[in-house]
């Protein structure tokens, strides 16, 4: 039995990201890291696989640069890593990704639970999480802050889910796809031995042909990246005693008609 988790590399959140003259997104020489939200997903996969006596497998869909996130995952303690890549995925949309992700899970064969981070810090359209669940035809449980119970024999799962208005305790059926929030655990750091082992690992690469995937025809295409319009750079320092500063600020906000 396997627990599968998806991850990839993203630019460090401190990176200055810009669109260059050629219209490409660049982040200078800033490092790439495992998508920060996925650390919780990776940790949860390790914990859940251990308690179920199964294996934790991590999958990245993407060009070779994403191997770094897989090595980090192996160093944390994931049992297996796979990378899916195919030139026809270049610039493909969320639905294409989800179709591919679902096929990768099916190829592993014995997956009961798929774990995603809440979103990626770069593209941040969590859409393909839900779409992967629908393509698999599995239960989708999002924004999970705690796994309360999994019963693999009865094929049930009980979780705590956060909503804008509070939290729910819900039960559902396996197999399931879940997305997890940072409250769920405290991700471990890779150990020294883990890093050594991971650096030697050879990560299998799958193509769309290996997965038997045909991409959907309706699609969303990114046509351009743009830098933000310059912020209204008017900036005014309000000086004086705290009382004077307060009075002047209130004047300004009343003038702007925002109160």
């Amino acid at each position: 039995m396997r627990i599968a988790v998806f991850t990839r590399s993203t630019p460090d959140t401190a990176a200055k990201v810009e669109v260059d003259a050629g219209g490409k997104v660049t982040w200078g020489d800033a490092a790439t890291v495992v998508n920060p939200w996925d650390e919780y997903a990776l940790e949860e996969a390790i914990v859940q696989a251990k308690s179920a006596g199964g294996k934790a497998a991590v999958i990245a869909i993407g060009a070779p640069m994403h191997e770094e996130a897989l090595k980090h995952s192996l160093a944390m303690g994931l049992d297996e890593a796979y990378r899916v890549w195919d030139t026809s995925l270049e610039g493909a949309d969320g639905l294409a990704y989800a179709t591919t992700a679902a096929a990768a899970v099916q190829k592993l064969g014995d997956v009961e639970l798929v774990i995603f981070g809440k979103e990626s810090v770069d593209i941040g359209s969590d859409q393909h999480i839900y779409q992967t669940a629908r393509k698999l035809g599995w239960t989708m449980l999002s924004y999970i802050s705690k796994i309360l119970e999994i019963d693999y024999a009865a094929r049930t799962i009980k979780v705590e889910k956060m909503l804008e208005q509070g939290k729910q305790v819900i039960t559902s059926q396996l197999p399931a796809v879940i997305s997890v929030l940072k409250d769920i655990n405290e991700p471990r750091y890779p150990s020294f031995i883990g890093i050594r082992k991971a650096s030697k690992a050879v990560i299998p690469e799958w193509t769309l042909g290996d997965l038997g995937v045909t991409l959907p025809t309706n699609s969303t295409k990114v046509t351009a990246f743009k830098n933000l319009p310059p912020r209204d750079s008017k900036s005014e320092m309000i000086e004086g005693t705290p009382q004077e500063q307060a009075a002047k600020l209130v004047d300004k906000l009343l003038e702007e008609k925002v109160l």
């Binding site: 630019p11 959140t13 200055k16 990201v17 810009e18 669109v19 997104v25 810090v121 770069d122 593209i123 941040g124 025809t217 309706n218 699609s219 969303t220 295409k221 990114v222 046509t223 351009a224 990246f225 743009k226 830098n227 933000l228």
Partner: peptide, 14 residues
């Protein structure tokens, strides 16, 4: 995208 550091334009069909 990129946490609002840049914008992207996209077109959808179907």
């Amino acid at each position: 995208v990129y946490a609002g550091k840049v914008w992207s334009d996209a077109a959808a069909s179907g």
